[in-house]
């Protein structure tokens, strides 16, 4: 079972990610902010889903951090935001993809599959 780490401050959206992703057969670990994620000694997941607007450290900063760390720099990162204007910013921060809220569950799953397959292929 593939593992996904989600950083999302809104409990409603966190629930949604959990439901959608678990229904699609993923294992989900959720964090409500970036600090907790970065400080935790987490198991490297197959993919990160980061909300852009996180309290404290911004999702893009978390992305930069992850992309700068040897252990995580090759793990795909999908940035999620309610703001439509950060597609460019997220790619600048090294994110592999960007998804705008609200989104279709199907689309999210497709995106995740695309990036995990890509990574599998690379490996």
């Amino acid at each position: 079972m593939k593992h996904i780490i989600v950083a999302e401050d809104d409990p409603g959206i966190r629930d949604i990610f959990k439901i959608i992703l678990e229904r699609a057969g993923y294992e989900v670990t959720s964090y409500s902010n970036g600090e907790t994620l970065m400080e935790n000694n987490f198991t490297a997941p197959h993919i990160f889903i980061l909300d852009k607007q996180l309290p404290g450290i911004d999702g893009l900063e978390v992305c930069r951090f992850l992309k700068s760390q040897e252990s995580t720099k090759n793990i795909p990162v999908i940035v999620v935001s309610a703001s439509p204007y950060i597609s460019g910013l997220s790619s600048n921060a090294g994110a592999d993809d960007f998804i705008e809220k609200p989104f279709k569950g199907k689309f999210l799953i497709e995106l995740i599959e695309k990036h995990t397959k890509k990574k599998d292929a690379a490996q």
């Binding site: 409603g12 959206i13 949604i16 439901i19 959608i20 309610a82 609200p102 989104f103 279709k104």
Partner: peptide, 9 residues
């Protein structure tokens, strides 16, 4: 948009 996202999902 956040509540809309939840509703949609």
């Amino acid at each position: 948009r956040t509540p809309v996202t939840s509703i949609k999902a």
